[in-house]
Design a protein around this nucleic acid. Structure first.
Lengths: 126, 126, 126, 126
DNA sequence: GTGGTCTAGACCACC
DNA sequence: GTGGTCTAGACCACA
């Protein structure tokens, strides 16, 4: 089961954070087609966000074709995102974890790590 | 010289994007204490954002003690962010680039990679 | 300029009524690409609907690619809907008006007329 | 026999769709006083809607004096709607069908046609 | 009890 | 002054 964590006061809209977390869970295989998302009320209880904010996040996922809301029964994962199978992801995750350990022991903070990744992904100096 | 890229319509506030990009450039050593930030006018021309938005971003960086506005001459980097020296960053960047190459050849998209990193940084299953 | 009329208490969601009216105005050529929709505040004043309801309608039109919201300046028609040129529409409208006059003088109410049209469009008995 | 078609996900409440379809069938003479409506069970099977939703639709029609529920035997049309006799309706239907054929061959979509009719019924520019 | 609609109002981002 | 975000809470449609 996915649990959401909303960082309020970061300026980052709460409904976007929720949407992103669903997308990431789908990419990582935590959410598979047919799985039910936490109910709106669950998310409200868990994350402290208002119900309408959750609804908005779910509605946008629905419009994106990723989930499907069924009145009275819940919201369900419909589409897929990211093609990576666990057999592929697991060794990569392991390799990345090793690299992260190195980076941290060299004194890098998480923000440094994100910055480095963005640099590398965007192909150097950009 | 740093060049800003603002993604409008992503829901992510423009002034936060600018601030984040300055911070990342500082972390990666692209911006060093004493360096001058692009002028507001430059950023407007480059990114299509309104001047007030740029001013707001710079003002917040100044309040954070990271930059200093000098009337008539521009805005200059004052503080530092991230403790990593180039001698430390370079081999890490290289290691990361190698891992990214692997991940991509395994079919992962950039979003998959970000998701994996977030997972690893947050300590596994979260 | 388009003016909205929202029928509250019909059970028909207000935001759908607004969306439909924009779409119809586009079909009839009352709204052309580049035209500005009434501001959210205008609609609130005109129709008595809440601002968020209007925003929701406009956001859905934007997601459908029909309009574009520009912060600080308004919401503008972007796409097109219905290919009918005025030269084509005008004679048809005239013919229809004539038929409507007949139907009404035969005692039909508007609801009868809608029912008839729906029957004819759906191809008879269906 | 009337057959219901409920469009879920249109935002239009299912019970209103059912009610409207009964009303239209009455206006067009498909349902006459004394006729029996489909059983709730039939509608559930046909339209995929929940039984309570059908019951709610029938209850509202009953409150409007249009139908009458007889315990154990079904729901029957009681009142009338629309004053048009078949001798009146048929030629009008024919005239409308001719107009619709014209409109379609001019490239109009059904939505265009509905928009035009609404415009004409509401008396022009509204 | 599920998702959905609407409201009223505060506050923010942007021009 | 423009659109947008978020909240709190009432109420509805549906299973």
């Amino acid at each position: 089961m996915v649990e959401f964590h909303v960082d309020r006061g970061s300026g980052f809209p709460a409904y976007l954070q929720l949407g992103q977390q669903v997308r990431e869970a789908m990419r990582l295989g935590w959410l598979q087609p047919g799985d039910r998302l936490p109910t709106v009320r669950d998310v409200v209880a868990t994350s402290g966000v208002n119900a309408n904010t959750v609804l908005k996040a779910y509605r946008e996922l629905e419009l994106a074709g990723l989930v499907e809301a069924r009145q009275g029964s819940g919201t369900f994962v419909k589409g897929t995102l990211g093609s990576a199978a666990p057999e592929v992801l697991d060794p990569l995750r392991e390799g990345l974890a090793k690299w992260v350990a190195e980076a941290r022991s060299a004194g890098l903070e998480d923000e440094d790590i994100y910055a480095l990744l963005r640099e590398v992904l965007s192909g150097g100096a950009q």
